[in-house]
């Protein structure tokens, strides 16, 4: 059995009166890529937004049940501590438009008022960009605005920005859906490599993508976790008929 980094127990999520997650129990295995797939509106994004407590940002939103990160209940942890341990990459690449590439990578430190020595900052920028497979392309343009990069490069910059603060868990919300196929392919390659240093949970509505990048796959439908297991098993021998129907494109 794999070691677990994050565990939910009976997780329910609400927006006002609307129940979006109906009691999810899932163990996210450490240093693996876990894909969360399902049709639109099934609660995939809400699920990962619970993991870094972004869900509670929405007025009227709340959760029930437990989420344990490294065994600790995240609601009892400091919000900032949770977000440091759990990074997030969004659907649309969103580097900070007023900052250079360099400052974007360091944003997690700079924006929080953490002072870094020059050599240390330099090292973090280089390491993070290397981890995000962007270093070679931008090493001579570090002080240009991040918004000058192509969409795929911007997304990798956002990945570097998230990695720079050394999260244990990296959440990715359909990270390739706004990218062209070639850029998407590069990000997928990157995701497979990231698991050496960080656990990845990637939301996707693209079945093929889950098949390519994920070690484990969760299938969510109407706010319920229908099935969760090693990707190869889930894809070849789904236990639930709904999983099979989704995989074969009968709905979603």
């Amino acid at each position: 059995m794999e070691s677990t980094i994050l565990k939910t127990e009976g997780l329910k999520a609400y927006y006002g009166e609307t129940k979006v997650l109906r009691g999810i129990d899932i163990d996210i295995p450490r240093n693996r890529v876990t894909a969360v797939m399902g049709p639109s509106g099934c609660g995939k994004t809400t699920l990962i937004r619970c993991f870094n407590r972004m869900h509670e940002m929405v007025p009227g939103a709340r959760i029930e049940g437990k989420i344990r990160l490294e065994g600790r209940d995240i609601t009892s942890m400091k919000l900032i501590q949770v977000r440091r341990m759990v990074g997030m990459v969004f659907q649309k690449p969103n580097p900070f438009p007023t900052m250079s590439i360099y400052d974007n990578v360091l944003a997690g430190y700079r924006l929080s008022g953490v002072k870094l020595r020059k050599e240390e900052a330099q090292r973090i920028v280089e390491e993070s960009l290397k981890k995000a497979a962007l270093w070679e392309e931008v090493k001579d343009a570090l002080h240009r605005r991040g918004t000058f990069l192509s969409g795929g490069q911007q997304q990798r910059l956002c990945i570097a920005r998230a990695l720079a603060v050394n999260p244990r868990l990296l959440l990715m919300d359909e990270p390739t859906s706004a990218l062209d196929p070639k850029a998407a392919h590069r990000v997928e390659e990157l995701i497979s490599r990231l698991k050496e240093t960080v656990t990845v949970v990637v939301v996707t509505h693209n079945v093929a993508q889950a098949g390519r990048v994920a070690d484990y796959t969760a299938f969510l439908y109407l706010g319920e976790l229908i099935e969760f297991g090693p990707t190869s098993q889930l894809f070849t021998a789904p236990q639930d008929p709904r999983t099979e129907e989704y995989l074969t494109g009968k709905f979603g």
Binding site: M88, K92, S112, V165
Partner: peptide
Amino acid sequence: DLRESALALGVPSWRMILK
């Protein structure tokens, strides 16, 4: 998105707004 990605980096709200 921009606000959320700052918050997701563990930046406090008031710093996110100002910076």
